[in-house]
Simulated scan of single mutants.
Amino acid sequence: MLPESVLKYQHEIWQAIGETFVMVGISIAAAVLIGLPLGTLLYLCRRGQRYQNQVLTVVLGSLVNIIRSFPFLLLVVFLIPFTRMIVGTSIGTLASTVPLSVIAVAYYARLVEQALLDVPKGVVEAASSMGASTVQLVVKFLYVEARSGLVLGLTTATISFISYSTVMGIVGGGGVGDFAIRYGYQRFETEIMIFTIIIMIILVQMIQLTGSGLSRWLDRRS
């Protein structure tokens, strides 16, 4: 039986969960659609790879490192003008997805690069000896060999995105973390705090178990 204080705010709780899913879902999409190609490009431009380009490697790598080095709260504030330019406002759940997506792209790009670096060199050499184009090399060889690591990386990144989303109340982004602060901490309702923490733990555990299970399944198919 849920405590009366939790039942009192059940509408707000569901709304907060929905806001968290929106923020994390859009950041995951950005990570896959932009971070995956960016991480692949970082790999291909490294020394000894097909498109070896030291200048591009340094520029892209430095940009990724700078974004990842920013304390996330400061990054949110720093990107307010950019957020306003992209979505027309700097407040709300949609606005929150902009800084989340920026950090998601940089974060996952590095994980993708690392996963591709773990692919045995023999696989790349075999693909080149068969005359594989760059697209074929990436899609049919690198991604296939690295798929388990790519899934694990996305799982780790997703959990980090959930953690980042908890501070989006600073721009009115809402979400479970913002709900816990406003209704639990500021109103001294400990039961609300505990309940929202339990929700976050369950959500993270579900994502981790799903990601780990999928990664193991893909690894066995290699």
Rank of each mutant, 00 (worst) to 15 (best):
L2V: 14
L2A: 14
S5A: 04
V6N: 02
Q10W: 10
I13G: 07
I13E: 02
I13S: 04
W14A: 10
W14I: 15
W14Y: 14
A16F: 01
E19C: 07
M23S: 08
S27D: 00
A30E: 00
A31L: 08
V32Q: 02
V32P: 01
P37A: 05
L42E: 04
L44D: 00
G48S: 10
R50P: 03
Y51I: 02
Q52V: 03
V55E: 06
V59A: 00
L63R: 11
N65D: 01
R68K: 08
S69Y: 05
F70P: 04
P71A: 05
L74A: 07
V77N: 03
R84Y: 06
M85K: 14
I86Q: 09
G88P: 11
S90I: 09
A95Y: 01
S96T: 11
T97D: 06
T97I: 06
T97E: 00
I103E: 00
A104D: 11
A109C: 01
V112M: 05
K121M: 07
V123H: 03
A126S: 05
M130N: 10
G131H: 03
V138M: 02
V138W: 00
K140R: 10
K140D: 09
A146S: 11
R147Y: 12
L150F: 15
T155N: 10
S165R: 13
G169V: 01
I170D: 00
V171N: 07
G173I: 03
G175Q: 04
V176L: 15
G177R: 04
R182Y: 11
R187C: 08
I192M: 04
I197G: 12
I198R: 10
I201G: 12
G211R: 08
D219T: 15
